[in-house]
Lab assay of single mutants.
Amino acid sequence: DVEPGKFYKGVVTRIEKYGAFINLNEQVRGLLRPRDMISLRLENLNVGDEIIVQAIDVRPEKREIDFKYIP
C-alpha cells in the first residue's frame, strides 16, 4: 500500500504536458505534475528513467496517486 509522505522508487512510463506518469510496480501508477517538481523540469525526464518520488495524495477509491519530486 502506498502511504502519503513516504518515498518510493518509480519508473517514468509516459510524459504529457500536464505531468509524468510514474509506475511503482505493475499495479501502482501515479502522476508527477510540473508544480510538484523541485529542481527538476518535465523536459529533463525521459521514459524509462528511474526516480525517487514522494506520495503526497493517495485516493485508493479512484486509484489515483499524486507524487512530488524532492532531490
Rank of each mutant, 00 (worst) to 15 (best):
E3Q: 13
G5V: 03
G5T: 05
G5H: 07
K6W: 08
K6T: 08
Y8F: 05
K9P: 06
K9G: 05
G10D: 01
G10V: 05
V11G: 02
V11C: 07
V11R: 13
V12I: 13
V12W: 02
T13N: 06
T13M: 09
R14K: 12
R14L: 09
I15P: 00
I15L: 10
I15V: 11
I15H: 01
E16I: 07
E16A: 13
E16T: 13
K17Y: 14
K17F: 13
K17W: 14
Y18H: 06
Y18F: 13
Y18Q: 06
Y18A: 06
G19E: 02
G19W: 05
A20L: 04
F21H: 07
I22C: 01
I22G: 00
N23A: 14
L24W: 02
L24C: 04
N25L: 04
N25R: 08
N25C: 07
N25Q: 07
N25I: 03
N25W: 12
E26K: 15
Q27R: 14
Q27A: 14
Q27D: 14
V28F: 09
R29Y: 14
R29D: 07
G30H: 02
L31I: 09
L32S: 00
L32D: 01
R33S: 04
P34S: 11
P34G: 10
R35K: 15
R35D: 09
R35H: 11
M37N: 06
I38S: 13
I38R: 10
S39N: 14
S39C: 12
S39E: 15
S39G: 15
S39A: 14
L40C: 07
L40T: 07
R41D: 09
L42F: 08
N44W: 14
L45P: 01
L45K: 01
V47H: 04
V47L: 13
G48S: 05
E50W: 15
E50V: 15
E50M: 15
I51G: 00
I52K: 06
V53T: 01
Q54F: 13
Q54T: 08
A55R: 04
A55M: 05
A55C: 12
I56S: 07
D57C: 09
D57N: 15
V58T: 08
R59F: 05
P60T: 10
P60R: 09
P60Q: 10
P60F: 09
E61M: 10
E61S: 12
K62V: 12
K62F: 11
K62C: 08
K62Q: 12
E64S: 08
E64N: 06
I65W: 09
D66I: 12
D66P: 03
D66A: 09
D66W: 09
D66M: 09
F67H: 01
F67A: 01
F67K: 02
K68A: 15
K68W: 04
Y69R: 02
Y69D: 04
Y69G: 02
Y69H: 07
Y69K: 02
I70K: 08
I70R: 08
P71H: 10
P71K: 08
P71A: 10
P71R: 07
